[in-house]
């Protein structure tokens, strides 16, 4: 390494100019993807052990090592580690972000997974063996031979009511969820309804309260008695939890206040015409124009459009 004196920095010559041409070129060209995995076999085993514990104790947050990933923590590093510990060359991976296979983060994670594991990629639910997702369960329900991997930002459902880690551990251990109920009570008193949208708290298998983060309420009932395995990974918080197939997932709500999913009266997908899907609002492209609704699950929406076109012709 060359030492650069302060006075030399004042000159207009950029530091890179001093480097040989070939070095500059190689540092700017992305390296060819190497076939070696990001997680070594020991790391994969550790993650799998945490996953097994999580499956054995539905809804319980199992601590795991959470290694550094080539993505920032908070950008799906937890889900990524689960996927990397699960897949091999004979797997087919679908990655979605907000239901969209073409979201920048989804594309990058999918490339990373396929390049380093040799797994195939797909956008079709029925072709995938592992579906990694942020924010959605695909509209087409996965089956009992598929695994849903969710990227979780905040795994602790009680974070809003308690910050002390020891007290949180005690509350889960004793199933003491009174303060969660108080927060729901306060919400109804203040707002007339339970306002919690993503991360709605659910009782899993009649025992642990779990954050269904970050899926919308729309998808919460779909976790209940689902045929597929759901694995939740929080990389930053170093926790893995699971909803095994055919497990009860009950949203916390009062007996006289029914749990409701998001729904906008009259909203229809402007692309495929769907009404019975999770729709997102697309803001107007120019001021004063009207916003429109589209399906959040883009692959599902595209297939519906293709079917519509076939039927029309």
């Amino acid at each position: 390494m060359t030492l650069v004196h302060d006075d030399e920095l004042d000159t207009a010559t950029p530091a890179v100019a001093a480097m040989p041409e070939s070095t500059v070129a190689s540092s700017l060209t992305p390296p060819e993807p190497e076939p070696v995995g990001i997680l070594d076999e020991h790391a994969k085993r550790e993650v799998r052990r945490a996953m097994l514990s999580a499956v054995c104790i539905p809804g319980y947050q199992v601590p795991f090592g959470s290694r550094e990933m080539p993505v920032a923590r908070g950008w799906g590093s937890g889900g990524l580690q689960i996927t990397l510990a699960l897949v091999g060359a004979d797997d087919v991976v679908k990655v979605i972000d907000q239901g969209d296979d073409e979201g920048v983060n989804a594309v990058n994670l999918r490339r990373l997974i396929t390049d380093t594991t040799g797994a195939e990629e797909t956008t079709e639910v029925d072709e995938a063996t592992v579906i990694q997702t942020r924010h959605r369960i695909p509209e087409d329900e996965p089956t009992d031979d598929q695994v849903l991997v969710l990227q979780v930002p905040v795994p602790e459902p009680l974070r809003g009511v308690e910050r002390d880690m020891m007290e949180l551990a005690r509350m889960h251990a004793e199933a003491d969820y009174a303060r969660m109920w108080v927060s729901l009570y306060e919400d109804v008193v203040r707002n007339g309804v339970i306002t919690k949208s993503t991360g709605y708290p659910c009782l899993v298998g009649g025992r642990y309260v779990m954050a269904t983060t970050p899926i919308p309420r729309w998808d919460v009932p779909r976790l209940h008695q689902s045929p597929f395995l759901s694995l939740f990974g929080a990389g930053r918080e170093r926790r893995i939890y699971a909803v095994p197939p055919l497990t009860d997932v009950e949203p916390l709500t009062f007996d006289d206040i029914p749990f409701e999913v998001e729904r906008t009266e009259g909203a229809t997908c402007s692309l495929c015409g769907a009404t019975e899907a999770y729709l997102v609002e697309v803001p107007a492209s120019r001021p004063g124009g009207e916003g429109r609704w589209t399906c959040s699950d883009t692959a599902w929406c595209r297939r519906r459009r293709e079917q519509n076109a076939e039927e029309a012709s």
């Binding site: 109920w181 108080v182 306060e186 009062f254 007996d255």
Partner: peptide, 18 residues
């Protein structure tokens, strides 16, 4: 709230009707 403070022991005892 005052009501919420009372809801705490009630929900702890299993009350689930708002």
């Amino acid at each position: 709230t005052a009501g919420g403070n009372i809801a705490d022991p009630l929900t702890a005892a299993g009350w689930r009707n708002f």
